[in-house]
Design a protein around this nucleic acid. Structure first.
Lengths: 355, 355
DNA sequence: TTGAAAGCGCTACCAC
DNA sequence: GTGGTAGCGCTTTCAA
């Protein structure tokens, strides 16, 4: 085995001999020489709270400017033990919800002085090497936005003393902090709304079976229906995947007694349901059949969909997540925090209205 | 001015006194001690090509395993002058094209041993601080996927001796490498297709005015129309933005002589056109009016849209981009490479067919 | 193949 | 407020 734990597949290339004679990048010493000050002064000029005279700082900054000097975060990180980077695991980018989360995370963390180091999960489940690589980069924390094997990742991070925070999912055991939407409450509200709309036959389209989010929404939905004297909904699995959701829709609509209301574990699958019901079964959404999602992504408001859904407001969720993450970083650990950010039932026209 | 060049807004927090007594992370020395070998041996065990006996490497790996040791990339980077990270500037995440690019980039670069350091551009144009931050992290290269002020960024990177590669855009001057689609050829093909379809009044919906991509597509479209004896198209600006595109659509359709064919600089705006034409003007797409996009994102194939478009195949584009980037890294610069990846006219039903 | 030793560029601590 | 100095955890000579 040439490659320990399968992690060292890559060798960084050596600069070839004929390469352009790349100038050595200026260091703090170079700047100090030009500014006529010590290297310590240069360091202080680039450190916010440091005690340095305006005069000295200006000299350093001027010298830095002319030399094109930029403090080396790598060197700084080595001594401060903080890289200023946050590892972000994210996937399912076809579902609009995650690109939006990514953008918000990047902005919020940037404002706090951190940058995101991305790692996406490939088709295979070889979670280990990826996380391992990221941990080697000494990220100050890890955010798990959408991955398989969440618990395993979370465990490995805490073993490595790196704070983990999940968004839109949680671990079974209370081992990691998380920020989620109102899965149970939202699903209950949807159940009540659909029952009030006079629907008779309900179906639930699940996401990934091992997803806490999908499970909680399913439980809330079933509870909500049960509380109103309705039987448990039909059930089909869409795995958060567009094509799988289309297939599931067909199975549902081909039944002798097809459902008249389908609640999907997220908007992304709800779109698949709408597209399929409309194009392959000729149904009019909101009249022949009601479809409800969860998330309230931008697409949900487009005229073609007008999707009734339960919102998971991205700004507040991300804001909370960043707060929690920074807190863990500052405390060097601390007890897990599991936060629920309130959403709201967004009523559009994809589901028949009460009365 | 307490914060030089506006970059030092953040101070990393000090671990508070009451923080959990976080164990020091194991270093190569610790592993060496346990393995009964030198620290050099540990280094070699984790370096692919290094000359070390199987026996020694196994001992090191075992010791590393028990201690939970992970080589510190920060320290390694300091000496090797390579961080193993690539800066990625990306925005417009609402346009499906970019999340897809992001995912593909992450995967391809991961396979080559690199990770992505993200930076997204906020609403303001203060490009400098962001790029500066990323450059401080000593990224091995920078990818510009969708930003304003591309040229400025590109210039700053090359000044800092960091390779830059653009995707889906290029700089006016040949200062940076780029990978783009067949903007001109594709737009010409679309013009020919629409003319063959018997359309009479053409319109072009532009993206951002300073975008090379939008300009090239517009030129190609006009050339294509002109070559077939058609006048220049009407023109409206959508800035790659959904709402702006909706507004532009209204302006177009409210004219005394509305166009019967609209070519949009990208799919994202084409969806806005379709939604608006359908919901606010009651038009049937592909019959009353033809709409064509550019990119061929996943949404374009949904039954609700069936968008005729010119494809920009993400896998090949990203693959080329990674090749070019690695080449620049290995050569330590080199001449700019401007690559065009072929696409194809994807005919669906949003535009009337010839005959 | 191995170990000792010299830094990589910076921060942090110490005197002054 | 300032400059010297000792490392941070590694890679990379160089001898052995």
């Amino acid at each position: 085995m040439n490659s320990p734990r399968g992690l060292m597949k890559h060798r960084f290339p050596q600069a070839s001999p004929q390469a352009r004679p790349r100038l050595r990048r200026p260091t703090a010493h170079d700047v100090a020489r030009v500014a006529g000050l010590s290297q310590s002064a240069v360091s202080r000029a680039f450190t916010p709270g440091a005690s340095i005279s305006d005069d000295a700082r200006l000299k350093v900054l001027a010298a830095a400017q002319t030399l094109g000097y930029r403090p080396n975060m790598i060197a700084r990180s080595l001594i401060t033990e903080r890289s200023g980077t946050i590892g972000l695991a994210i996937g399912y980018m076809e579902n609009q919800f995650y690109p939006a989360i990514l953008e918000a995370l990047s902005t919020e963390f940037a404002a706090a002085g951190y940058r995101l180091l991305l790692f996406t999960q490939g088709p295979r489940d070889d979670s280990d090497p990826l996380l391992d690589e990221v941990l080697r980069h000494r990220v100050d924390a890890v955010i798990l936005a959408s991955v398989r094997m969440t618990s395993k990742f979370a465990e490995e991070c805490s073993k490595a003393q790196v704070p983990v925070v999940l968004i839109n999912r949680r671990t079974e055991a209370e081992i990691a902090s998380s920020v989620t939407g109102e899965n149970r409450i939202g699903a209950q509200a949807i159940a009540a709304f659909l029952v009030a709309g006079g629907h008779q036959r309900f179906a639930y389209m699940a996401g990934l079976e091992d997803s806490s989010t999908s499970r909680e929404r399913e439980e809330g939905f079933s509870e909500g229906l049960g509380a109103l004297g309705q039987p448990a909904p039909l059930r089909v699995v869409g795995n958060y995947d567009f094509e799988a959701a289309r297939a599931g829709t067909k199975r549902l609509l081909l039944r002798k007694q097809p459902p008249d209301a389908i609640f999907c574990a997220n908007d992304h699958m709800a779109f698949a349901v709408i597209e399929t019901a409309r194009s392959e079964f000729g149904l009019t959404i909101g009249r022949d059949i009601s479809v409800v999602g969860f998330d309230d992504v931008a697409l949900a408001a487009w005229p073609s969909f007008m999707l009734t859904t339960y919102s998971q407001p991205i700004q507040p969720m991300v804001h909370r997540l960043v707060e929690i993450t920074l807190q863990h970083i500052e405390q060097g650990g601390g007890d897990p925090i599991r936060d629920i950010v309130p959403g709201a039932l967004i009523i559009r026209t994809s589901a028949r209205l009460p009365q």
